[in-house]
Structure formats: structure tokens, C-alpha cells
């Protein structure tokens, strides 16, 4: 199973910081997501793309989490060399993260 099977997502940008929301399609799955989609797992999956710190904010009443990632756009939207300067595509990339739901 991949994250995309349980959640949807949107990227926003401010300077060199992006936020990626992870929102459960079904709020019943939220506790599972909170357990599996940790800062460490997200940081590992995105690898070198995110150079800075990652913080997770939980919003259980929306069945959602918000990941805030520093140094993710090679200097920020206005000076980035990235083809996708805003990091808009990174939400779709993160949804490809495999989830181990056996436990």
C-alpha cells in the first residue's frame, strides 16, 4: 500500500520553505497515518530534495497533518534553479511513499 491509497495532499511554498499537507480520505484512517507517516519516514523518503529541518503539525479534527520543510527549493521560489520552483509536484511524489500496514 502507498500513502496515496489513504490520503490526498497539497504543497504550498513560502520562500525556501514548503508545506505538504497529508489529509486522510477517510478520517477513520487518520490514527494510522499519524503512526506511520512520521517526520523520520518523510525525511528519508524525500532524501536530498529537502535539505533542512522537517516539522509535523497534527490537525486531527480535519484528519490531516501538515509537514513543514526548510531548505526545500534550492534558495526559494524567486531564485530557484528547479524546473518546479514552487515544489508543487512534491505532494504527488510524497504520496508514492510505501506504507507498511501489517502491524
Amino acid at each position: 500500500m502507498k500513502l496515496k491509497d489513504l490520503a490526498h495532499s497539497r504543497t504550498g511554498d513560502k520562500g525556501d520553505i514548503i508545506n505538504i499537507s497529508i489529509i486522510a480520505f477517510d478520517e477513520k484512517d487518520y490514527p494510522k497515518l499519524e503512526k506511520l507517516v512520521t517526520v523520520a519516514a518523510v525525511k528519508k523518503f524525500l532524501g536530498e530534495t529537502v535539505q533542512g529541518n522537517v516539522v509535523r503539525y497534527e490537525v486531527p479534527n480535519l484528519g490531516a497533518m501538515n509537514f513543514v520543510m526548510q531548505k526545500a527549493l534550492r534558495g526559494g521560489v524567486t531564485r530557484s534553479l528547479r524546473l518546479d520552483k514552487h515544489g508543487k509536484s512534491l505532494s504527488s511524489i510524497l504520496l508514492e511513499m510505501p506504507l507498511d500496514i501489517t502491524n
Binding site: R10, G12, N19, I23, Y57, N61, L62, N66
Partner: peptide, 26 residues
């Protein structure tokens, strides 16, 4: 939901010149 968290960092502390808005209980 997607738009509520768009370009937000800490949902309980959304800084604006008029108020520090708190979206975390919405």
C-alpha cells in the same frame, strides 16, 4: 481541507498583520 493548510506552517499560529489566526480547531 487542502486549501485550509495551503501555505500554512503551524495551523494554530497563522501570522497576519491583523491577528494571529488559529485554524487548528476548525
Amino acid at each position: 481541507k487542502e486549501q485550509l493548510l495551503y501555505e500554512v506552517h503551524d495551523p494554530s499560529t497563522y501570522l497576519t498583520p491583523d491577528v494571529v489566526a488559529d485554524f487548528s480547531h476548525i
